[in-house]
Design a protein around this nucleic acid. Structure first.
Lengths: 139, 139
DNA sequence: TTTAAACTTGACTAATTTAGTCGGGTATAT
DNA sequence: ATATACCCGACTAAATTAGTCAAGTTTAAA
């Protein structure tokens, strides 16, 4: 059970952005340097974050990114959804008619894994970006 | 964030074993057939479960496996540790002196991910094998 | 004592996923 | 004009995972 770097980077980058979110946009270059994340990789991530209305982009010279909402209104789960992080504990999805092993309708531990998924999701729903800003001393 | 089949199978197989755990040992062949898990794969898993004293093996004809402890005393976390499932949210480990990115001592979201790990671990520690036995109707 | 059922072990492999690069754009403030 | 910064699709190397293969050993029962 492992969190992907993609999600880890997305949360890191947005926490950084939130910290430096004055009225001036923050460039990916700055975030890249401060957090040690590849600039090109950040571009990929912010494209998705923008599509999901987590951030707004400002193009051209002096451009960069700003948060679309206040940090207190951004759930961590919003971020993870934006970059396509999925919590997967069971092979079968809720939609599939087939059942878990293609045999029984539900595998023997189905309910347990679903409970686990909920448990994790709840954590991400409760946490806001703002909660992360002052958690650790910066660098 | 995804649970490996290894862990999923281990928990499934042990739940099955616990259900059929009378005084007679249960064969891997039976578990394999009931749960639709490759027999050879189960052998790998049960080797580890045996080393970690979760189950006992009885060799020879009429042999098989039995639980080493009561189902009410087996934590799900015990099972996951036995098959080497690890919850990894951060690149850096607690031991490493290097820090998360090899730069700062702690990455900006370090504490958050550690909190998430604890959150997940707690779930597995609280749940016992017994809790899973009667959760879903069997097949 | 033979035999078959069942456990034991290590090595190997195909498929998938992930993290990240490359290269060529487009928009806009100065 | 032009430099700065965002935009976007295609590609790839490395790691991980799920699972097979082959060749044993042990032991209860016939």
């Amino acid at each position: 059970m492992k969190l992907s770097s993609k999600s880890r980077y997305a949360v890191m980058a947005l926490t950084d952005l939130a910290k430096f979110n004055t009225k001036d946009p923050v460039t990916l270059r700055d975030i890249s340097l401060r957090q040690g994340i590849s600039l090109v990789y950040l571009e990929q991530l912010f494209l998705k974050l923008k599509k999901n209305k987590i951030v707004k982009s400002i193009r051209g010279k002096k451009g960069g990114y700003i948060l679309n909402r206040k940090a207190s209104e951004v759930k961590i789960s919003d971020i993870l959804i934006a970059v396509d992080e999925r919590i997967k504990t069971i092979g079968c999805s809720k939609q599939s008619k087939q059942g878990c092993n293609g045999r029984s309708s539900k595998c023997i531990t189905h309910d347990f894994w679903e409970e686990l998924e909920d448990h994790i999701h709840n954590f991400f729903k409760k946490k806001k970006l703002e909660d992360l800003i002052n958690q650790t001393r910066f660098n």
